[in-house]
Every structure is written in structure tokens, then in C-alpha cells.
Amino acid sequence: MRAFTYERARDAGAAARAVAANPSAKFIAGGTNLLDLMKIEVEVPTHLVDVQDLGFDKIEATRDGGLRIGALVTNTNLAADARVRRDYGVLTRAIVAGASGQLRNKASTAGNLLQRTRCPYFYDTNMACNKRRPGSGCAAIGGYSRQLGVIGVSDACIATFPGDMAVAMRVLDAAVETVDGTGARRSIPMADFHRLWGDRPDQDTVLKQGELITAVTLPKPLGGKHFYEKVRDRASYAYALVSVAAVIQPDGTGRVAFGGVAPKPWRVEAADALLPRGAAAVTARAFQGATPTKDNAFKLPLATRALASVLAEAKA
């Protein structure tokens, strides 16, 4: 790990200013992904700003009947919150399908959104990777790509966003609240938060340097039945090959997003509208224009089957 200096921030404005002022500074909360990457020198911050004292650790009701989840709420506490379990089951299900108990106790809501891809070529500093080192090429294209993206990818990068929590938040139309070094605040719809790689795969999200996530808001509950179906290589503690987050209403309408397939939680609203016509109709629309490799082409039928399983359960 490279040497860095460390400070424990007292307020959000000071934290944002400190990171905005130094292009190689980073915020640290749970640190479970950042430290992992610092150990192999994929991440090399020269300064860390610890945000654990900023007080963003509560889940509060909002005036429009939704919830405001503090950026520092741990994955465990978010999944366990009685309101989340009752009204946003897809979110609890997604969180407990990810990582391990130890990691969920430490990982924060904001950090979970900012976790980086698990593409093996991103982790292996001997390999070309446009995400890790812009312009160096992509060793994943033509390489071992079984776990990588099938849609929304580019000629520069075929990595996926690896998380589960954000896939549920996409179905729920969550928004990410931030504050920057100048004190300006904004609310970013989850749909726009993660970027498609294009020719800048080094940029995972639309956040600017020093822009600090303060909360994630959920609109009022949708009702319906909530599902998170995750298909992976082992029964627990593995990344998704394909995951399906869905909220299905009694009349068969609903919403669906897919994980493990793209640079971001993959939801196509026009495909949602096809839910009453069955899984194949939905995935045909949601994955229109997909560019799988021969190693990960299996993800397309797998997505259809995982969704079919959810829809069968919704009818039961």
C-alpha cells in the first residue's frame, strides 16, 4: 500500500472541501472496497478523509412518505430496518444476497454504490485495463469474460457494476443526495448515477472530485410483491452472474432491473411495460442491442429464466 495522510472530518463541508482540493484525495467510510484496492495499488490515494463522524447514519421518514437513508448507514442496518423490510423488501433481499455478514456490518450505503468492478483484469495490475489505466487497452475483450458485461459496454471496457443493493434501488427509483466542496447540493436519480463506460471507463459515476454522498432517498412504497433473484456460482458470498430485482403488482404489471450484466443496474422502462406478457418479452426488449462475448452469452437466456422464475413465484 502507498503511503497516505489521514484526517477525520468533523463536518461534511470541510470533508468535501478537503477532497475537492486534492485530486488524489478520497473519502473513506467502511473502507472495505477501497482498502482492498489500495493493498494491490489499484487505488493510490495520497490523502484519506474519514467521514465516519458526519452523522449520516440514520434512516428517516420523508414528507412524501418515503425514506431518507443516511450515506453511512451500514448495509446490515439498512437491510434490518423494519420499514425497509416491510415496504421495500426488494432492497433488504438485495443487500442480504451480497457480500458476507462481516462486510455488511462495515460497508456503508454510499460506499456500496461506489464499489468498483470485480473484472479480473481491473484487479491484475500486470494486465491492460482502460478503467485502471486509461489508454492501456482492455485485456478482458478477447480474454476471460464469463462474468463480464453483455450490454451497455463499450470497445474500451466490458466490466460490470458488481453490486446488488443499487439494482434494488434502481427498481425503487431511488435518488442519491450529494454536497460538493462549494456547499452546492444536488439529487441524482439512480438511473443517472452510474455511467456507461463509453471511452471513459475510468469514471464509474457522475460524481465530481470532492462531491460527497450524504443520503439516498426512496420514494413512497410501491406495494406489490418484492423479489431479488440472484444467480451465482456458489450459494452464498459470490457476485451475481445475473440478478433480477423486481416489484410485481397483483395485476401482473411492475418493474424490473438486472444486475451483473452492465456498467450499471440495468433497467429499461419500456421493458417494464411488457411484464404482463412474460419474461421472454421483457428480456427481449431490455437486452435489445446486447453485445455478449461467447463466454458470457449464457447471461441472456439466464436473465430470461431468472425473471421467469420470479414471475412464476409472483403468481403463486
Partner: peptide, 26 residues
Amino acid sequence: DHGQCGACTVMVDGVRINSCLSLAVM
């Protein structure tokens, strides 16, 4: 040393974490 095996599990303020993925100064 990367949070994958759990051999480093300890409890901090009553909950288990991977001590390998946490800075002591925090």
C-alpha cells in the same frame, strides 16, 4: 488479507468485521 476468507474476524463495538479491511486509526 482481502476480506475473502474471514480468518481475521473480530468484533468491534459488538459486531463482527474483517479486521484486515479496516484501518486501525479509524
